[in-house]
Every structure is written in structure tokens, then in C-alpha cells.
Design a protein around this nucleic acid. Structure first.
Ligand SMILES: [Mn+2]
Ligand SMILES: [Mn+2]
Length: 1051
DNA sequence: CTGCTGGCTTTATGG
DNA sequence: TCCATAAAGCCA
């Protein structure tokens, strides 16, 4: 409740500064800004101050009422200083700590650690750049730089060289005869990729990697390695097997958890031992294994199952019932049943060893018989994993097909419950070991979904193993040897939003297998393998062929490394203050109805639907015959009723009301001032209603609803998260958003259901509540009238009273990327200063001291600056700034000429896109822009604007995605991996939940270091050679964050 | 008459 | 004729 009642201190009004600088502010500008300011010095500042209200309307109102709002009741200081001036900013770094300490809201220790020193002495931004070379060599073939940290830079498929000699099974002939290599040649041909690639120290230093990479080279496409088995011994798996089969422990094994072969650091070579299903225990290496491969299929089938009824009985769609039904029939469940063995056969098969798997494609089957569970919401009710289908290659012999039952109901080969349970446990061990093996190439369609589902999966208890201890820990997933064909397809065509493998199959595979649409039919995993192979080949060709291979592999590895992180985020969700949310929703409801009533009364239309722009347009433009506001509105539709239009209309009406007040003579033009006053009130009611309706229907209600439905059906998020740390919500509730890895053309992530990337930042003050009789008339008095400041972000609260939220947000990320990519010295210089670039540039444009640029003006400057860089037209700039076109033209020219290298870079982007038909980010990701060659001017111009934006926004996405993985690893290295969890990414911001507030300083330091250094010691291709400053904040809710400083250097 | 769908408008975020 | 998203409501 308290989350929605708090005060925002009014911003400082730096009156002294006004007095001191108003007359000669130009002299206070940096020398290089005077020229710019001279051009715009007569720009009416008024235009900006009114526009500021456009950008920050809610905020403006919130401030007005802030003084009356009660102080926060939680043990946190709201240290949000205005920081609108340089002096204010300087003070703000020092004062909050003092404030906080004085108020006694933090322990002395916290007060000491939460200090607010300025960042370290500013190194000129870009000082380490090589100014003689361009950052992006557009005309060179892309070779990238495959070096990188061990965790993501290791070429994924380098070690997997034994695929080519293995012939595909003839039993599922999916191949097109025209393709000569039906053997995964593309994936395997990378055996030679190491040649010519300088090994990074990190990679070279890793025993296992160096070993694994070096070994197969000579053989090339030759015969299978007969060398040592590569399957690592997995302690828990081993224990399971021992327990379930009752075999005596192999001599080498020892206690289950002692070896730690799958440790997270990866610096130690994994212990290699043959994986045995049962007796005889691990045979010596190199034992002849002719029978092994032959038996593999049946061994796997021995864990077979019976067909289970789909959860939803009938495919309700009447369309193509036969095709649908046959697809159902052909799930691996039924397939497995066909080959299911008798108990005797089973026992016999158990005695055989597993083949040494080198490459596997795996798909899940959910309880509904599909492999995607229809859209795949995380934690979707009833989404249970029923089975896994595998297709793989061993070191020799036939490829193997397998269907593994992961639920006891899916087992058919066993005669009793205990037997079924044993087989499920066995199957789970296999699946789990495939996932954590660093040496077995794993083709995993929809990897993020699969990982999330398997992390939820709890195998049946099989003493002495407890289910918890054999759960999948997503923090330990190795992605270096993982390939998701969905991601490959996205890398190939990022604008195609087809996340379904079957669709990809239809597009890229020679023979689309209609039946295998979503369910992994017996051939589906093999098809996935083939698809992956084809996609990789297409990708390699598109990315520049053989010499691009190492860098392409590094790119793929970097993307795959994000997958478990996203799966964890999806699984964990965001913690909610449910009570506060409900209270806010109720209050907003009353407010909204009040506005609606007002509007209907003033419009004299009791049935007016304010949510219908159509009806509103009729009222405003037809019935009331209001004149649409001037200001040469952009190409907006003539009858638009959007916010800028209504705001202009409101301002004009307000002027008329003001003008008519002194005279008092209404009725001069037939419609008196009383009319204008009513119209003004109507427009204001409409605007308020819009805002409040948006709050309610898009944010408050869905948050309440999604959270409730989740906790009702999926208890997982409030349980221990597999690592023993409780992450509940306030009241144990959380909301689980979907994180789309392949949802954008630029490489950004996208969030949905709910979207947590567009939750309103500013608080909104309910205006109707308590003000009018309306609220009281319909019983609104029962709703606490004091609850009038609504901030949705305040509903995101850490679990428990001891926690905190921690946020780390890159400062001016895209501007910095532009500066570094373009090598623009002027821009770099401006970014070197501690001063906020949007304030200084805003000051230059506005012709006033940076100290006087308020938050609204800053936001406006930011918007205009980015827009200008990305191709804002003169007309719209003029409309945006409310200045004549000529002045907009002038402003634009001056600003762009001020940063000449930047302008040249923009041009070079367009030229490169024209030549190549695509653009490429710093991380190497491609985005085709075929429209760049269009003969239609509109399309071509749009593509030209897109290409600049894609490069920069996409590069930012590369950087932030890398920083996500690096930050998680940094936290893990600081032993905070289980206490500080990433819960959201907002394009340039990472949001963490901290279980213990005392961890905030350490977590902040680790995260800051990881994020700021991505372009210095992260993946080689991203090394722009500059520190990227990050603003770290923390607080009791997402709406009340305060700065966390860098580590103090004790003197 | 009900329910679904695609296009359109609007608004929230991020850069 | 800044870019990139998600989502809600209206309407045919
Ligand atoms: Mn930022
Ligand atoms: Mn941000």
C-alpha cells in the first residue's frame, strides 16, 4: 500500500543561477557550443517549456501535488534530487548519503557503503581509439574477430568433427537426393576452422578446449575417432544409475558429488569416462564396440513409453482433421510404443553401454502432444513435459533415434510403477547430461523454451536421489556446444517473425514434413538436425563464406549464451506488490469514471465512448466544430485526435479563455468564453481519461490478472528456484513475462505478456479523485482519497523486507556507439565531460545554461537528437519544436555540421547498405534491407533511415546482451549468483532483484564493472576500446531508485 | 445473434 | 518521411 504513497521532492529551482547567467549565458557555454547557440539564441524558450509539458505531463502534475503527499513509510529515503543543475548534480552525489544517514534509514554500515562519490577521474571518451582506422570496414569481407572470453567465444562446433563419416539412417529418408551431403557436412566441416584464427589467451589457456580443438584436425573428414570417449562423467547421473540399477559403484566413481566434473568454471578438463547404463560398469577405453552402436537404438527404446492422450481431447479446429490426427498419431510416444521392448529385452538392453554421443538433436513433447505447448507461455498451466525425442550421432555406427519417457504415464515398457519410475529417472539423467555436456553438440530447437520447461521439471523421487538434487540448474547450462535452429533462422532473416521450426522447415528444408509440424515425430529430430545443418550452411554463405566461419561461430555462441539467461528470467519473473496494485487499480477506476462522466456531460452525449477515436473526432471536429490546431501538423490524418493534437487544441482553447476573461463580453463570435471554457474542460477530461485508461487496461489490470493466474496454476516461481534461494513476491506473487530472443529485426529483446519494457516511468497524479463531487457521489469516499499518486513501477518490489532492486543503465548508449563507430572527435569530446550530453546539447539548442535545462527539456532534447540522427525530416522537426520550417532547417544543418564525422558515418552506412543490400552490427549480426534498392522513393528512404538505426541499435543490443551474460557471471564469481538475480532487461538497462539489501554495494560493483567493461575486455569483436558509463541505482521498488556510487577510494 | 479476425488508432517504453 | 517494440480498444 505504501508503495503508492510517497513524495517526490520538488526539483531545485536554481534561481541564483538564473540571475547570474540570464544576461550572458552564451559566455558560459563551452567554446564549441557558442557557434551553435548563436544560431538559435532567439529561439523562444517558451516553445520548449510548453513542449516540456507534452513530454512530461504526468510528472508535472505529480510535482504539484507532491508536497501534500505523505512521506514514504518504508525504510528508504527518497533521495531523488532534481539534479537539474551542474551544482545540483554535484551536490546530489554527496548529499543523499548524508540525508539517508541522518534520517537513520540505513544502518551505519550501509550509509558508509552507499556513498555517492563521483565516478573516477574522467578519461577522455574514446581516448584508446585507433583514430586512423574506421570501426566498420564496410567494403572488406566480414571476418569479424572470433576471439572472446572462454564462455562465449569458443567456436561452438569446432570440436565436433565426427559427424561427417556417419551416414544417416535410411529409415527416415527425409533427405533430398539432390543434396550431396546428407550427413551434416556443414556442421562438421568446421573442423578446420581453427586454422588461421589467432587463439585467444583465454581459449588457449583452457585445457579441455585446447585439447578438444587440437585433436581431430588431421583427420578432417576421415573416419571416426577411435580415441577416448568424450562423454563426461556426470556425478549425479552416475549416482542415479547406480541407485536405479543397483549396480555396485564403479571403482573410479567415488561419492556422487565429489568429482564436480560439470563445474561452472570450465577451467578444469572434464573427467572423461564412459557412461554406462548399468553393468558392466565403465569398460576400459577403446574397447571394441561393434555391438554398441547397433544396440543404441534399442537401448533407447527400452526407456520407451505408451501413448498418452492429449490434454485437450480434440483438435477443435474442423480444418484438416485427418492431417492433424495423423500428426498426433505419429508422436514419438506412439513411435516408441512400436519399438517398445519386453521386460526381458529391456533387461538385456540395459546391460549394454551407451554410445559415445557426439551430437544430438533433441525435442520435447509436452503433455498436449506438441513440442511448443501452443505458444509457450512460461509456466503455462498444465504444460508438463511428457517425453523427449532424440536423434544423434555416436562416435561410430548408425545414428540413433530415441524416445525418452519423462513422465511415468508415458512409459509402456515396464510392468510396474517402480519400473516405470526407474526408466523415467534414467531418461532424465540422459537428457540432463546431454544438456550440460560441453563436448556433445546439441541441436535444440526452441532452446529457451526447452530449458525453461526442463528447469521446471522434477523427476520422480528415486532414493537415495531426491528430486530437488537432480533438477536442472540453468546457471550451469553450457551453451558453447548448443545450436538452436530457430535462432539461426532469425540470424539469417531477422525480420521474419516465424519462430516455429515447422515453418522454417517448410522454407529451408527440401521436404517439408507436414506431419512433423510441432510434434517430434520419429523423424522430427532428424529433420531438426538437417534443418540446422541447412540453416548453418545458408548462414555461412550469407555471412561471407568460409573465412567468416570463426566469427560466425562466435556470433552464434554469443547469441546462444543469452538463452539460459532468458530462460531464467522467464522462470523467475518479477516480484509484485499485489495489494498496492489492487488498490491502485481501484483508485484509477474511480478517477477514470469521473473523467468519462465529465466528458460526456460537456459533450452532451451520454453515450459517448471516449475510447473510440472515431466518436471523439465526430464530437470535436463535427458537432463542436472546433478548428484543428495549427502548426502544420505532420502527415497525420486530418481527423486525428492523438495527444499532440489535443494538447495543442487545449493550449489554444486556454489562450482564448484567458483572452476573453478581461473583456468579459462573451458571445462576440456567437460562441462565448463560457463555451471555450467548456471545450477546454472537455479536452482536458479526454486527455486525462486517455492516460488513466491506459494505466488501468494496459498495466494495472494485466499485472493483477497475469500474476493471479500464474500463482493459481504454477507454484514453481514461489518455490525454491532450484538453488535453494527463495524468490517470492510480496505475498509470494510474481509475474512472468515472456522474453523474445528472436522477436526484433535489430537484435533487441522484446518482452510480452506482460511487456515489462514499457511500464510507465513517471508517477501519475489522479486529478479527478477528491477534487469533484463526482467521486464522492458514487461512493468514492470509501476509496482512500489520499491514494492519488500512481506509479506502476512501485508495484515491482523485491521479495521480503530485506531485499532491494538494483538497476544498471548505460548512459547515452547509442550516442556513445555512434561516436565510437564514426570516430567523431567533437562528439567524443562532449561525451568525455561529466555533464549530461542531453543537457549540454539541449542548452546549446535552447540557448540557455545547461544548468537550467529541466527534466522535460532534457527528454525533449534526447528525443530530438536521436530523431535527427536517425533522419527526422525538417517538417516534423519544425512541428515538434513548434518553430518555423526555416528555423528547423537551420537548426538541423547546424547540428549535423557540428558533428561532421557523424554525418559522414551516416552517409557511409547508407552507401554500404546500398552496395550490400544489408547492414551489419559491430557484433556481426546482419539485417537484410532489400528495400534500400527499391524504386519507390518512400520505401527506399525508409530503408535508408532504417539502416543507420539498425546498425546503432543493433550494436547496442549486441553490447547489452553480452553484458547480461557477463554480469551474471560476475555475480556468480562474487558468490552472489543465487542472491542477486537478473529479472528484466530494458534495452540498455539491467534490473536485478537482490535478496539481501546488504549485498547491494557488492552487487553494484560487480555489475557495473562487468557492464562498463564490455567493450574493453568482453568479446573481441565488441572491443571499441572505451568504457561505457553505467548509472547504477537501487531502491525498495522500481519506482523509487536512488543512485549507488562507485567504490570509494579510501584516503 | 455470437464470436473471431485483421486493420487502424492510440499510447506506453527504450535509444 | 526518426528507429525499435507491445498492447488495448474500436470497427467492419
Ligand atoms: Mn540509458
Ligand atoms: Mn534506460
Amino acid at each position: 500500500m505504501g508503495a503508492f504513497r510517497y513524495a517526490r521532492p520538488a526539483p531545485e529551482a536554481p534561481l541564483e543561477l538564473v540571475a547570474r547567467h540570464a544576461e550572458s549565458y552564451v559566455r558560459y557555454l563551452p567554446a564549441d557550443e557558442r557557434e551553435l547557440a548563436a544560431h538559435v539564441v532567439d529561439l523562444p524558450a517558451r516553445a520548449w517549456t510548453t513542449e516540456r509539458r507534452v513530454a512530461g505531463a504526468a510528472n508535472g502534475r505529480a510535482r504539484v501535488h507532491a508536497a501534500a503527499a505523505p512521506r514514504p513509510s518504508s525504510g528508504w529515503a527518497t533521495a531523488a534530487r532534481g539534479a537539474a543543475s551542474a551544482e545540483g548534480a554535484r551536490r546530489a552525489r554527496i548529499e543523499p548519503a548524508a540525508d539517508v544517514a541522518a534520517a537513520g534509514l540505513l544502518t551505519p554500515r550501509e550509509a558508509d557503503e552507499w556513498h555517492f562519490d563521483a565516478p573516477p577521474a574522467p578519461v577522455p571518451f574514446g581516448a584508446a581509439l585507433d583514430w586512423s582506422t574506421a570501426a566498420m570496414a564496410w567494403d572488406e569481407p566480414w571476418v569479424g574477430d572470433a576471439r572472446g572470453p572462454e564462455w562465449m567465444g569458443t567456436p561452438i562446433v569446432a570440436e565436433h568433427t565426427l559427424l561427417a563419416p556417419v551416414a544417416l539412417s535410411p529409415r527416415t529418408p527425409l533427405s533430398d537426393a539432390a543434396t550431396p551431403d546428407a550427413r551434416g557436412a556443414h556442421l562438421s566441416a568446421c573442423a578446420t576452422q581453427r586454422a588461421g584464427v589467432p587463439a585467444s589467451p583465454a581459449v588457449a589457456g583452457s585445457d579441455s578446449r585446447a585439447d578438444a580443438c587440437a585433436r581431430p584436425k588431421g583427420g578432417g573428414a576421415g573416419g571416426p575417432r577411435s580415441g577416448e570417449p568424450l562423454w563426461p562423467q556426470l556425478p549425479t547421473m552416475r549416482a542415479q544409475l547406480d541407485a536405479s540399477v543397483g549396480a555396485r559403484a564403479g571403482a573410479a566413481g567415488g561419492p556422487a558429488h565429489a568429482t564436480g566434473a560439470s563445474g561452472a568454471d570450465g577451467t578444469r578438463a572434464p573427467k572423461r569416462a564412459r557412461l554406462a547404463l548399468a553393468e558392466p560398469p565403465a569398460a576400459p577405453h577403446g574397447a571394441p564396440s561393434a555391438a554398441k552402436a547397433a544396440l543404441s537404438c534399442s537401448v533407447l527404446a527400452a526407456t520407451g513409453m505408451q501413448r498418452i492422450a492429449p490434454a485437450h481431447a480434440e483438435p477443435s479446429a474442423p480444418s484438416a482433421p485427418s492431417a492433424r490426427a495423423s500428426a498426433m498419431e505419429r508422436t514419438p510416444l506412439s513411435a516408441a510404443r512400436e519399438v517398445a521392448m519386453s521386460r526381458a529385452e529391456l533387461d538385456g538392453a540395459r546391460a549394454q553401454r551407451w554410445p559415445e554421443l557426439r551430437a544430438v538433436a533433441m525435442q520435447l513433447v509436452f503433455s498436449d502432444g506438441t513440442s511448443s505447448f501452443h505458444g509457450a507461455r512460461p509456466g503455462a498451466p498444465g504444460a508438463r513435459v511428457a517425453a523427449a525425442a532424440l536423434f544423434g550421432f555416436g562416435t561410430e555406427g548408425e545414428p540413433l533415434h530415441a524416445a525418452l519417457a519423462l513422465s511415468e504415464g508415458a512409459v509402456s515398457g515396464a510392468e510396474d510403477v517402480a519400473g516405470a519410475r526407474q526408466m523415467v529417472v534414467l531418461a532424465w539423467g540422459i537428457v540432463r547430461s546431454v544438456l550440460v555436456s560441453p563436448t556433445c553438440l546439441l541441436v535444440l530447437p526452441n532452446a529457451q523454451l526447452v530449458l525453461g520447461a526442463l528447469a521446471e521439471y522434477a523427476p520422480p523421487a528415486s532414493p537415495p536421489m531426491r528430486p530437488e538434487s537432480s533438477r536442472l540448474d540453468l546457471a550451469r547450462i553450457r551453451t558453447a556446444a548448443m545450436l538452436d535452429p530457430v535462432i539461426l533462422a532469425w540470424l539469417l532473416e531477422p525480420d521474419d517473425s516465424s519462430d516455429n521450426v515447422s515453418v522454417l522447415d517448410a522454407r529451408h528444408a527440401p521436404q517439408p514434413d507436414a506431419a512433423g509440424a510441432t510434434a517430434p515425430a520419429p523423424g522430427a529430430c532428424e529433420a531438426a538436425w538437417r534443418l540446422c545443418d541447412k540453416l548453418y550452411a545458408a548462414l555461412l554463405a550469407a555471412y561471407g563464406g568460409e573465412r567468416a566461419r570463426p566469427a560466425l561461430n562466435e556470433l552464434i555462441a554469443r547469441e546462444m549464451a543469452v538463452v539460459p539467461t532468458l530462460a531464467r528470467m522467464e522462470r523467475l519473473g518479477l516480484p509484485l506488490d499485489t495489494a498496492g496494485l489492487s488498490a491502485a487499480a481501484a483508485a484509477v477506476d474511480v478517477d477514470m469514471e469521473s473523467h468519462a462522466a465529465t466528458a460526456r456531460r460537456l459533450a452532451r452525449k451520454p453515450d459517448l465512448n471516449l475510447s473510440s477515436p472515431q466518436q471523439l473526432a465526430v464530437v470535436l471536429w463535427d458537432e463542436l466544430r472546433l478548428t484543428r490546431p495549427g502548426g502544420a501538423r505532420r502527415g497525420a490524418p486530418a481527423r486525428s485526435t492523438d495527444e499532440p493534437t489535443l494538447r495543442r487544441l487545449r493550449d489554444e482553447l486556454a489562450q482564448r479563455v484567458d483572452a476573453e476573461r478581461p473583456g468579459g463580453a462573451d458571445g462576440a463570435d456567437g460562441r462565448g468564453g463560457g463555451c471555450a471554457r467548456e471545450h477546454l474542460a472537455l479536452v482536458e477530461a479526454v486527455l486525462a481519461h486517455r492516460t488513466v485508461a491506459k494505466l488501468k487496461s494496459t498495466y494495472l489490470e494485466p499485472l493483477v490478472h497475469l500474476q493471479l493466474s500464474d500463482t493459481a496454476h504454477a507454484p514453481a516461481p514461489t518455490r525454491h528456484d532450484g538453488d535453494g534461494v527463495p524468490f517470492g513476491g510480496a505475498g509470494g506473487t510474481r509475474v512472468r513475462s515472456r522474453w523474445a530472443h528472436t522477436g526484433t529485426g535489430t537484435g533487441r529483446l522484446a518482452s510480452s505478456q506482460p511487456n515489462v519494457q514499457n511500464i510507465p516511468r513517471e508517477p501519475y497524479t489522479l486529478s479527478a479523485l477528491g477534487a469533484g463531487a463526482g467521486a464522492r457521489a458514487d461512493g468514492g469516499a470509501a476509496v482512500a482519497p489520499a491514494l492519488h499518486v500512481i506509479c506502476v513501477r512501485d508495484a515491482i518490489v523485491p521479495h521480503g523486507g530485506a531485499g532491494a532492486l538494483l538497476s544498471a543503465d548505460y548512459s547515452q548508449l547509442e550516442v556513445r556507439i555512434l561516436a565510437l563507430l564514426s570516430r567523431d572527435a567533437a562528439l567524443c569530446a562532449r561525451l568525455s565531460s561529466e555533464a549530461d550530453i542531453f543537457r549540454t546539447i539541449g542548452a546549446a539548442i535552447l540557448g540557455k545554461p545547461a544548468a537550467l535545462i529541466d527534466d522535460g527539456e532534457r527528454a525533449m532534447t534526447k528525443k530530438v537528437l536521436y530523431a535527427l540522427i536517425y533522419g527526422l525530416g525538417t517538417e516534423r522537426l519544425a512541428a515538434e519544436l513548434k518553430v518555423p520550417t526555416a528555423r528547423a532547417q537551420q537548426l538541423k544543418g547546424v547540428l549535423l555540421s557540428r558533428f561532421g564525422q557523424l554525418r559522414d558515418f551516416i552517409d557511409s552506412c547508407k552507401n554500404a547498405a546500398r552496395r550490400n543490400g544489408h547492414v551489419r552490427t559491430l557484433g556481426g549480426r546482419r539485417r537484410p534491407l532489400p528495400a534500400i534498392a527499391s524504386v519507390v522513393d518512400e520505401e527506399r528512404a525508409r530503408a535508408e533511415r532504417q539502416c543507420v538505426n539498425s546498425i546503432v541499435q543493433g550494436t547496442a543490443a549486441d553490447i547489452v546482451k553480452a553484458s547480461m551474460v557477463l554480469a551474471e557471471r560476475a555475480l556468480a564469481a562474487a558468490a552472489l549468483g543465487e542472491r542477486v538475480r537478473l529479472i528484466a532487461q530494458i534495452h540498455d538497462e539491467l534490473l536485478f532483484e537482490v535478496v539481501e539489501r546488504a549485498d547491494v554495494p557488492r552487487a553494484a560493483a560487480a555489475v557495473r564493472r562487468a557492464m562498463e567493461g564490455v567493450c574493453q575486455d568482453g568479446p573481441a569483436c565488441l572491443r571499441l576500446g572505451a568504457r561505457l558509463p553505467v548509472k547504477v541505482t537501487a531502491g525498495p521498488s522500481w519506482g523509487r531508485m536512488q543512485p549507488v556510487g562507485v567504490a570509494r577510494t579510501r584516503t
